[in-house]
């Protein structure tokens, strides 16, 4: 896929108001997500499988980077920030920074840290994630109202798994 096609795709995404487009070909996979706060959409993920003919390319340029300033192309190998905030419509998805077991309270019979409808601010404890008997209070990095709790109490969570939807407005 060349720069023109990527740019055309970006234009399409921004015009249509689509929030996310994922395109996968034999050569690579690209995900374009629009950011409501930025006029232009951002490409947050671009992946190229290790194909023999690609490896033989003279210039080891992974993905052509468009000259336009707004779109950002990053190889997928770059670490994805955990506990990441990710736009989901107008909501922010709070994700797990680690593998473990998700707990909504400090212990059996104790009050929950956060309920749907609660307003949380930066630094508020939202849950505990336990791994190998290490207990971690997860502090919120965002402020807003909890719209949805995506995990049941005392169930396993994976790294980067969405935990809460927060309405920042």
């Amino acid at each position: 896929m060349d720069i023109d096609k990527i740019q055309a795709l970006i234009k399409f995404v921004s015009k249509q108001g689509v929030s996310e487009v994922e395109l996968e070909t034999e050569e690579f996979k690209i995900t374009i997500k629009s950011d409501k706060n930025v006029a232009e959409p951002k490409i947050i993920q671009a992946q190229m499988p290790m194909m023999p003919q690609m490896a033989q390319m003279a210039a080891p340029v992974a993905v052509p980077v468009p000259a336009a300033p707004a779109p950002v192309v990053a190889p997928v190998a770059a670490p994805v920030p955990a506990a990441a905030k990710e736009e989901n419509g107008n909501y922010i998805t709070v994700k797990s920074p680690m593998i473990g077991t998700f707990y909504r309270s400090a212990g059996p019979g104790k009050p929950t840290f956060a309920e749907v409808g609660d307003t949380i601010k930066e630094g508020s404890v939202t849950c505990i994630i336990e791994a190998m008997k290490l207990f971690n209070e997860i502090e919120s990095e965002v402020s807003g109202k909890i719209v949805k709790i995506l995990i049941d109490d005392a169930t396993p969570v994976e790294y980067d798994q969405p935990l809460f939807l927060v309405d920042p407005s």
Partner: peptide, 10 residues
Amino acid sequence: VLIESTMKGN
């Protein structure tokens, strides 16, 4: 031993 921590981001 019981280790209890707070997580700030990552």
